[in-house]
Design a protein around this nucleic acid. Structure first.
Lengths: 205, 205
DNA sequence: TTGCAAAACGACATTAGTGTCGATATAATT
DNA sequence: AATTATATCGACACTAATGTCGTTTTGCAA
């Protein structure tokens, strides 16, 4: 319902397609979903879909970008006001608003893994993944470093190295979560182990 | 060159195809390699290849099985004679013969990730992955448990939980290794962190 | 040597997905 | 109401891969 439409409508349509795409990506994973799946979920014709996104990769990157933005906005809110210490801040960054381990995992995480693993031999995709990694790395490393300079944390370990280890462990959790049943991953318990390790490494509490 | 051949020859041919397949899987990854790639690398015709393996999945599982066998044979040798303590045994299991972190990684690891991640919605593939996980889990958990019962290790942590954490971390390393450049993963340094954590958790040295 | 069982071959039909493009329908403008 | 720009449509051509099958080749045994 809509030719020669307002910018508003175009934007809405795009958002609808994106939402539909996200649904099917979560359901089938990146590699197995086809443009046809998206067409059907979004109730758009082939031509219609291609007007907005010229291929699957573009579609997925739009979702990634949107998610990144949303998450960074969400945590931004908590940043200035509700942070008591660097330890608290670190917990916020790792576990989110609750500051403690839970059994939740981003439903898009398995698709993300596919996206970057399979694209690892593609120059563009690799660069993109690396950029995201650097971002994540900086977020953790900055907090740790600040805490160390502040004296709140021990500087026994290099801040950047610790940040890498955190990411590695979280990546491992995402991976195992993607391929194993709940009772094998035990997200919450395993996250608690990460917590214990960090307490030891930073000498807090 | 060989119809109505000896069993020996058949076995050799099969092994050659597997070796060729392994080469191309390492090069292109699981998803991107096609039967044609394998045909060319192994210098076998389409029909010839399908005589031995009726699809890519079967081919890959054969490689997985072979590798598993080979690794378990290798470590088996060290088991009875050259192990000084459970800590030593644990290091052997994690880092291999050298007992210490290095920058090596199974070249097939990225393909393995693809294989199990993309197949996560396939019943058969999922079961298979889970079985392999249970195997790996048992290997670590048994050593830790024995060490704990022996008094060599602290039993502060549950042996199985620790084993899970080890696997998670190693999986994370494999993942990051697959998609990031060497200088971002820093396999050796990150493995050292795992080592430090284990020393703390098991209270050794 | 010769004959044969079956290994190896490669053309082919089939399937599944992609991106394009001319036709169609309609929201906004006049 | 008529016009028009363009969003949307869906048929289509194209590509890439798969697995099959009739044919050819050849190692081995008689």
């Amino acid at each position: 319902m809509s030719p020669k439409v307002s910018k508003e409508h175009l934007k809405q349509r795009r958002a609808d397609i994106l939402a539909a795409a996200k649904t099917v990506f979560i359901k089938h994973g990146y590699e197995r979903t086809t443009m046809k799946h998206v067409m059907e979920e979004a109730k758009v014709s082939r031509g219609g879909l291609y007007q907005y996104f010229s291929n699957k990769e573009e579609l997925y990157e739009a979702i990634l970008k949107e998610n990144l933005l949303q998450v960074s906005e969400e945590t931004q809110e908590f940043l200035e006001n509700e942070v008591k210490s660097y330890w608290d801040l670190l917990l916020l960054r790792i576990f989110g608003e609750d500051r403690e381990p839970d059994d939740e995992m981003d439903p898009l995480a398995p698709s993300n893994l596919e996206f970057f693993i399979i694209g690892r031999n593609d120059e563009r995709r690799r660069k993109y993944g690396q950029e995201r990694y650097q971002n994540g790395l900086k977020i953790y490393a900055d907090v740790i470093k600040a805490g160390q300079e502040n004296g709140e944390f021990s500087d026994r370990y290099d801040s950047e190295m610790l940040a890498r280890a955190i990411i590695t462990y979280i990546d491992g959790l995402a991976l195992d979560h993607a391929i194993l049943p709940e009772q094998d991953v035990q997200l919450k318990e395993q996250s608690t182990i990460l917590l214990e390790f960090l307490k030891m490494a930073l000498e807090v509490e």
